[in-house]
Design a protein around this nucleic acid. Structure first.
Lengths: 210, 210
DNA sequence: CATAGATTTGAATGGCCGTTCTATTTTTTG
DNA sequence: CAAAAAATAGAACGGCCATTCAAATCTATG
């Protein structure tokens, strides 16, 4: 009965607090936490909250209802790595940093990539820009997409390009926005087997020196 | 005693709730509201909260502690209007919309403008982009700034340009990033009298069609 | 001025809330 | 296995919390 709980209870408690605050815009009460985690005793919840506090994940305002505060602000979308067209970089599996580009974009599994190089420069996407990616497999002609080439096994290299389905040639064209670079032309069969659209660009964010 | 309260009490109550939630990351209790607004009775607070609810400014979760929710999300930075280099548009006094570009940029009096035209295209700032402006009078050579020309009275027209102080010519050059457009050259004296740097660009935000 | 409506007070109620305490069970560790 | 540490339950306490009610005061309006 206790072996199937892969996750540590304090981790689940912390996750619940984070999610609750995201949806309810206020911290949960100790009893609400207990109800969620099937903890029968409020003292027990308090015990684990004390542990979380000791670990520095939360702080508490004594005696105040819902007096839990998160120490780390967990907002923004994960920056999953960088991407280039010249030499495609790999998408890392765990986020390196968080980009706070507004709650508006914090949907589903939206993530960000740092653009390297000038391959999309004529679309005014510069080296160092963050592109916000909305994961989806389908896309329309002209969309700027993250196209993944499935080469060996599961791991693939990704590239940022404009997508065009050329029906007359029965192929797909991945077009960089840089006249010095050539498009990637892929036959329909090869496309279906070896390529996958990972998502499309929904926003661009550029920091300037403060 | 009651005549000096220029602001409507419900407005002050609403403002307090907004500010409290911003700083405390949770809604205030009815008692905390009363304490702040010098209201002696909790029933009185409840009365005005009911009014605020009736006006649609808040909703309440019955019986829940701190069960106040704001209906309008008051996040983001105000979009103060649009700006162009060709024909400078005026900065509006009241925000038309809010741009949620992350809490990171929600400092001081930071605001956003929508770029119109292609005057900064070679800096890869496109028509329709949002530029995030940090208000400050000083700036360095090469900064992209909002320069305001104080023509008649208080109202001035604004333009987005790169700033260069040309000491050898004793003048200021406002340089568009478009080779088809000419820079604006302003003598030092005219600059000091008629112009003002309103702020500098600290970030750029571009939406793509979803 | 008189009445109606809006505002304010004070008190009361019942439930929720954080916290503490003791005791029991489970897990880890030597 | 035995001792120590961690986790869980249950109950209890005092205080905070939202809500309601009756009554008093203020404000506008005909």
């Amino acid at each position: 009965m206790s072996s199937d709980q892969t996750t540590d209870i304090q981790q689940r408690m912390y996750n619940f607090i984070v999610n609750y605050m995201k949806s309810e815009k206020m911290p949960p009460t100790n009893r609400e936490i207990g109800r969620e985690l099937k903890i029968a005793s409020t003292g027990h919840v308090d015990y684990h909250l004390t542990m979380l506090e000791k670990k520095g994940l939360i702080t508490r305002q004594p005696k105040k209802s819902r007096g839990i505060k998160l120490t780390k602000t967990v907002t923004g979308i994960p920056v999953m790595g960088s991407i280039a067209a010249g030499q495609p970089l790999e998408i890392s599996t765990d986020p390196e940093e968080m980009l706070d580009a507004g709650r508006e974009l914090e949907h589903d599994n939206t993530y960000a990539l740092i653009v390297r190089g000038r391959s999309m420069i004529e679309d005014h996407i510069c080296d160092g820009d963050y592109v916000v990616i909305k994961p989806q497999e389908s896309c329309d002609n002209g969309d700027i997409v993250v196209a993944v080439h499935l080469q060996d096994g599961m791991r693939g290299s990704a590239t940022l390009k404009r997508f065009f389905q050329e029906k007359e040639h029965d192929r797909v064209r991945l077009q960089p926005a840089n006249s010095e670079l050539d498009p990637i032309l892929i036959s329909k069969s090869e496309w279906d087997e070896e390529w996958r659209v990972q998502g499309k660009v929904v926003a661009i964010f550029r920091r300037h020196a403060a």
